[in-house]
């Protein structure tokens, strides 16, 4: 399989100039990269007169120093930009847009799916991912999904209640209910090795 072709196919198109997108993203949380730096920045969208901005919440120190507190979001074709109030503009990659859930219960996962159609949930601190497979109506959990050196088992359950109770030791924390992710998750990571 041509991996590069696969990456292109898996890249999700996003138009941040669409009125619906601006309305939907207003107040939501976002993880993104500036320039080609590998360190993720965390922030929250806000809008002024229908224009999207990001309030920067956290990043490693050199990125926080570079980003400042507020960034104006722009888009040229498929390329996103982030501009500081003093006019300095960066290339930006939006990685994930999400709601936050604190120590969620099974009903919180179900509510996010039923209300917003969200089927992907991510506990960033420990790289635990929960996905709802709509076609088979199954809930899956993968521990250490994103870690570069370790990919945990994916285990499937009939219900989210069962998943939560059998994995209670890794479920506590601040979860992301992901409505947008730049890339589709690869179902078979081992192909890349």
């Amino acid at each position: 399989m041509d991996n590069m072709g696969n990456i292109e196919e898996n890249y999700k198109k996003l138009d941040i100039n669409r009125e619906e997108t601006v309305k939907q993203f207003d107040g939501m949380y976002v993880d993104f990269y500036l320039e080609d730096d590998m360190f993720e920045v965390e922030g929250q969208f806000f809008t002024i007169d229908g224009q999207l901005y990001i309030e920067v919440h956290d990043a490693v120190m050199h990125i926080l120093e570079m980003a400042g507190k507020e960034l104006k979001v722009g888009q040229i074709g498929d390329v996103f930009t982030a501009t500081r109030p003093d006019g300095k503009r960066f290339y930006m990659e939006i990685n994930r847009v999400y709601y936050l859930m604190e120590n969620p219960k099974p009903e919180d996962f179900k509510e996010k799916y039923e209300k917003y159609g969200i089927s992907e949930f991510f506990l960033k601190l420990t790289d635990v991912m929960v996905r709802y497979q709509e076609e088979e109506k199954k809930w899956q959990i993968t521990k250490n999904k994103i870690n570069m050196y370790y990919v945990g088992d994916t285990i499937e359950y009939d219900t989210i209640e069962e998943l939560c109770s059998e994995n209670a030791d890794v479920m506590e924390g601040t979860w992301q209910a992901v409505i947008y992710e730049a890339y589709e998750e690869e179902s078979d990571f081992t192909e890349w090795c």
Partner: peptide
Amino acid sequence: GKIVIESGT
């Protein structure tokens, strides 16, 4: 119960 559908490395 559960089914392991992908093994870790």
